[in-house]
Every structure is written in C-alpha cells, then in structure tokens.
Design a binder for these strands. Structure first.
Lengths: 193, 193
DNA sequence: GCAATTCTTGCGCGTCGTGCAAGTTTGCGC
DNA sequence: GCGCAAACTTGCACGACGCGCAAGAATTGC
C-alpha cells in the first residue's frame, strides 16, 4: 500500500479532508453557530492556527466538499465530446455528476437541509460559485466562442443548480434532486453568438 | 418644511444613509480592508455599537445602496401593466431603473470598480441577491403562475444583472452598462409552465 | 407634562483572522 | 544513512468584530 503522491501532499489532503469532515459533522450536529473553529480543529486533531492554514472560516470548511464537487463538474464539462454544444455539455455533465458521485444517504441529507438554511452559508455558497464562473466560462468558450454568451451560460447554469437545490430543500423532497435540476436546466435557453 | 414621516423614522433613515455613505466613501478611499467599523461610525458621528444596530458588517453597509436599488427594481416589476409577461416585465423594469435612477458620475464609478473586485464584497452581493430571490419570485408569480418557473426566472434574472455588472467592470467600459445588461437579458429565455 | 416606547451608548466577553518566529516533519541529493 | 533546505505546524499576540445587556437619552401619544 503505497501513497501515490508524495507524503507531504498526502498528509495535507488527509488533514484537509479531516477538517472539512469535522466541520460538516459538527455543524450538522450543533448548528453552525454552535461550533467554533477551535472545536473543529480539536476534532481533526490539529491546532486552531492550522485550521486557518487550510480554511479562512467555518463556512469555508463546511462548503469544501461542495466546491470540490463543482470543480469535478467543470472537469467533466471539459471532457465531453468535442462536437457537443455548450449547454448540452453542461446538462449531460450534471447528469453524469449525479451518476458518478451520488448524494449520501437520506437522513444525512435531512440534517444538511437544516444547515443549509443558514444565511451565511447561502451567501458563502453563492460567493464560491461566482468565483468559479470564470473557470467554467473558460471551459465553455471552446464550445461557445462568444465570450459574453459563455460567461452568461456559466453564471446562469450555476445559478440554476443552486436554485434546484434550494427548491429541493424547501419542498417535501418528494422528487429526486437530479430530476428537478435537469428539468430546470431544460427550461432555460441561452442564445449564443 | 416638515418631515413627512415621524421624527424617529426620519432620524433612523438619516443615520442609516450616513453610515452607508461613510462606509462607501471610506472604502473607496482606503480600500475595504483599510477601514474599520469604528472609522465608519466615527465618520457618521455615532458609536461603533450603533453601527451594529444598523448593519452587521462593513460589507453590509457598503452594499446598502445596492440592495435598496434592487428593492426598487422589484417594486417596479410589481407596478408594470398587468397584461405584460414576466420576463418582459423584468426587462422593461431594468431599463426603467437605469432611466429613473441613473448611475453616478464616471470617476466615482472608476473607484467603485476597484472596490468591487474585493472577494468578500462579491460574495456578500451574491448572498444579498439570493435573499431577494424569494421576494422577486413572489412578485413574478402573478405573471408566471408556475412557481418553479417564477423562481428560476428570479434567480437567473438577478444573476444576469450581476454578470452584466461583472463584465462591464472587467471590460474597458467602452459600452454603456444598461445596453450591456439589456443585451444579456435578451439572450436569455426561461420557459414557463 | 408624563409615562411608554424606541434608540443610543459603553462595557464586556468570546470569537475570529493573521503576522511572526520557533519548532517539527518531509524531500532530496549525496 | 546524512544533512541541508523547503514546507508545514504550532503557540503567541493583537486588532477587530458581533452581540448581549443595562443604563441613559430621545421621541411618541395621550
């Protein structure tokens, strides 16, 4: 059993996962405001100072998995067949994401729901997405040469994802999230060129 | 010259405007990180504690005018002719907003540009918009009965506004912001029902 | 004018983010 | 293995922040 990467990178990845995991777990258990950075650091077995070396805030840590998911999505879009149109590539990648990396079990999601209502998390999530818009647009521009259109697509696409999650969290959750998101994506049309 | 509202409401409004104005001015002058809440409070002639009675953070205060603008926009959408479709009402209201409340002068905007690059402001702005999505969707639902579609429209509309501003800030600013935003809105189509 | 409501202020406390410097771990060439 | 350099962790210290609380000041309505 060898580490594929160097020991350093491996250790860092472990610490990061440990911190993000502890942040999410503790926040779901005690509420976001019921947890301090120190609690998270303790649970991960590192100092408060080290926490700050990885994340700038609790919110940052809690949403780490989310960001990682989105980055994976961008990579999937990039890997779609060359001929495929921009919006189609986005839709297909989204479906692929839910297939390849399904959501955790139901009661876990139930707790996550409560957590996600927290305003500072919503704000942070929105901010993260804004930061990703450029990267996504850069990938899209290969399929949609008009930069303005690519940028608009990236932004509205990410917002649609977020809206889908929001609706799903608000609703009884009767329907599956992937179906809901796909339906929303189908309603949207961004004209290029 | 009588105050139209009660003295209390008037005083509060004055203090709020004073704080928000000082926050924006000082932030443009020294950068967001170069200003403390205390600085802002001093400039507005109130205590640090009182600042917190109005705003929860610097970012909150700096973006106050922005939020107010958006709330005015929602009111405009509500006031559009009854027969008008949802998206059309949004587009028309946006144009109206730029007509009724034009942007301040050029050099003021130039400084604002620098300020707006600050990540914590972008995040906060995005968060503010998310908070407004519900209100906007509630107004839209009169014109677009499908709640899901109304919500999606609200979200993508606000994102388009934000994207327009972002593109405008990044670009040389050669074109007028209202034109840019309107063009983006024209590219987008949200299917109802 | 007076009592009730609302707003301001100062104080205190726990938390947060970060620069810094000392200590520890890891990587790598020899 | 050995030892040096780079990278990472940690504790410390500091300014700043957000907010609960209670006392004082302003405003309201009667």
């Amino acid at each position: 059993m060898e580490t594929l990467t160097t020991r350093r990178e491996h250790n860092k990845a472990v610490t990061r996962r440990s911190l993000a995991g502890a942040a999410l777990r503790l926040a779901m258990e005690h509420g976001l405001d019921g947890v301090t950075v120190e609690d998270i650091a303790d649970a991960a077995g590192v100092s408060r100072r080290t926490f700050s070396n990885y994340f700038t805030s609790k919110e940052d840590a809690v949403l780490d998995a989310d960001r990682e998911r989105l980055r994976a999505l961008v990579a999937m879009v990039e890997a779609r067949p060359a001929g495929e149109g921009a919006w189609q590539a986005l839709r297909a990648s989204t479906a692929e994401l839910y297939r390849v990396r399904p959501l955790p079990d139901v009661e876990w999601m139930a707790q996550l729901r409560l957590l996600r209502r927290h305003p500072s998390l919503l704000a942070r999530q929105a901010g993260d997405q804004v930061a990703l818009e450029r990267d996504l647009a850069a990938v899209l521009v290969l399929r949609e040469p008009d930069e303005e259109a690519a940028r608009l697509m990236a932004a509205t696409f990410l917002t649609t994802i977020r809206t889908g999650i929001a609706l799903w969290l608000e609703g009884a959750g009767a329907q599956e999230l992937p179906d809901l998101v796909d339906r929303l994506l189908g309603r949207l049309q961004v004209q290029g060129t």
